[in-house]
């Protein structure tokens, strides 16, 4: 089946992103297709490459990034939610006159329409949040 995932909470503060990671790994193992993972609300904070957790803790951003690399999963960050919270790719940084960008590899920034599209195209849309 085609599964769409929506993540509405940032990493570490809440278990949502961890649960989503475990769910996505299990779904891939079972042969399902992850159509898209969409990051909204504070969920956009999962995409910052500046995150530097202690050595003995999991690196949630890196885990998403590696999943995207290994399985070609489309990780999409909502542009409006990301701008509010300071998550920018090179283009967005330039457009907003900022001197730095922080989007982790494997993520891309796009509009809310990508979430609606995930709802339309996926067989199921599952939300993880607070």
């Amino acid at each position: 089946m085609k599964l769409g995932i929506l993540i509405n909470e940032g990493p570490y503060q809440h278990q949502a992103s961890d649960t989503a990671l475990q769910y996505v790994k299990a779904a891939i193992k079972k042969g399902h297709e992850i159509y898209r993972v969409f990051f909204y609300n504070d969920g956009v904070n999962n995409a910052t490459k500046l995150s530097s957790p202690p050595q003995d803790d999991r690196n949630i951003t890196k885990e998403w990034s590696m999943l995207a690399k290994d399985h070609g999963i489309d990780l999409v960050v909502c542009v409006a939610a990301a701008q509010r919270r300071g998550i920018l790719d090179k283009d967005e940084a330039k457009r907003n006159g900022k001197d730095a960008d922080n989007l982790e590899e494997g993520f891309r920034i796009s509009g809310l329409g990508q979430l609606v599209e995930a709802g339309i195209q996926s067989d199921r849309l599952i939300t993880f949040g607070d």
Binding site: M1, Y23, A26, K29, K30, R124
Partner: peptide
């Protein structure tokens, strides 16, 4: 477990 969580989402019509 998580794999059965996945099964539950696909066995129901919506979540």
């Amino acid at each position: 477990g998580y794999e059965e969580f996945v099964d539950l989402t696909t066995e129901h019509d919506s979540v």
